[in-house]
């Protein structure tokens, strides 16, 4: 019979909600009652969240204590003597050098550890800039609607119509000397329209909501309505998106570095750049590509898992 599954789902929710409705009185007191506390209660039992959180914590700790963890200077050609490129010979793993040396004889492990910093910086800053830009545009469009909305959204549509990596490459190419900063800017600009569109959609939905109407009926001015009611209630999906964008930015930044549009500094290693260098010798030394690529994947996965579990926890449909 048609429609039964739908009803079943509804009932399952109903079951869950009516169950809580009754167990509630004591429960709410202990939780403090805010929505974040509610979300945390669901996050706490989510294995996905914990896997993501552990990956990211480990990564952040490594980045912070990179100087302590890295056994050697990542720029020094310590294993030069053991490297014979002509004979396809690299320094093998050995005491003090757990992953051996790279094509120039630098300590691969130290380079990976120090490289985590750059990756984290790119991911976080690109997301922050993209988020802020999207926040401003989305708020403008969502709060004013009408003509402002049309203008902002057409601009956003234009940006969205260009494949994001292509756009990032074009922007990065505008800079005379590619650097870490140019990578961050290129990667973040690409994310602005994504955030703007998402936020604008949420804001428009909020604009139509009863509680915003209630505030209007009370005679509350526009600014407080936007900043106290519409914006805070629109942010959950945007925050979820932000965690996912960290992962995307890391991958995009790696791609730019890989293409030679990233930092050219030999002193400061970066995973994407390492991957780019390894590509030339990938037949002979696949492990040079394996380690930075693996790191990028794991970290991106960590942020994705975190984002997904947040999405689930903040989903209003799961809230009673």
């Amino acid at each position: 019979m048609v429609g039964l599954t739908k009803k079943k789902e509804r009932i399952d929710q109903l079951a869950a909600s009516s169950a809580t409705a009754v167990v509630d009185p004591t429960d709410v007191e202990s939780s403090g009652g805010s929505i974040l506390a509610d979300a945390w209660r669901r996050l706490r039992v989510s294995p996905v969240f914990w896997i993501g959180a552990v990956i990211i914590s480990v990564f952040v700790l490594i980045a912070i204590f990179a100087d302590v963890i890295a056994p050697h200077d990542p720029g020094e050609l310590l294993l030069r003597s053991q490297t014979r490129l002509a004979r396809n010979q690299l320094a093998p793993p050995q005491p003090g050098f757990p992953l051996g040396g790279d094509q120039l004889g630098r300590d691969l492990f130290s380079r990976l550890v120090i490289g985590s910093r750059q990756t984290l910086l790119v991911g976080v800053f690109a997301t922050l800039i993209g988020f802020t830009g999207g926040l401003i545009l989305g708020t403008l469009a969502g709060a004013f609607g009408g003509k402002v909305d049309t203008v902002v959204m057409r601009l956003v549509d234009v940006l969205l119509s260009i494949p994001s990596l292509l756009l990032a490459i074009s922007i990065a190419a505008l800079f005379a000397n590619p650097s870490q900063t140019s990578v961050i800017i290129a990667v973040s600009v690409v994310q602005i329209p994504v955030f703007a569109r998402l936020l604008r959609g949420q804001m428009l939905a909020q604009r139509e909501s009863d509680h915003v109407l209630a505030a209007r009926a009370l005679g509350v001015k526009r600014a407080p309505i936007v900043f106290r009611h519409m914006l805070p209630n629109s942010l959950s999906p945007v925050i979820v998106q932000a965690t996912l964008v960290v992962a995307i930015s890391i991958i995009d930044a790696a791609a730019l570095s890989f293409l030679g549009l990233g930092s050219q500094s030999v002193k400061v290693p970066e995973w994407g750049q390492m991957l780019g260098e390894a590509q030339q010798k990938i037949d002979s030394y696949p492990h040079l590509a394996f380690w930075p690529a693996g790191c990028i994947i794991v970290v991106a996965l960590g942020f994705t898992l975190l984002g997904e579990s947040l999405r689930e926890a903040l989903d209003p449909k799961n809230r009673r």
């Binding site: 869950a16 169950a19 209660r41």
Partner: peptide, 9 residues
């Protein structure tokens, strides 16, 4: 109803 993290109802 038995739900994870909740008392049976």
């Amino acid at each position: 109803f038995r739900r994870r993290g909740l008392e049976p109802f």
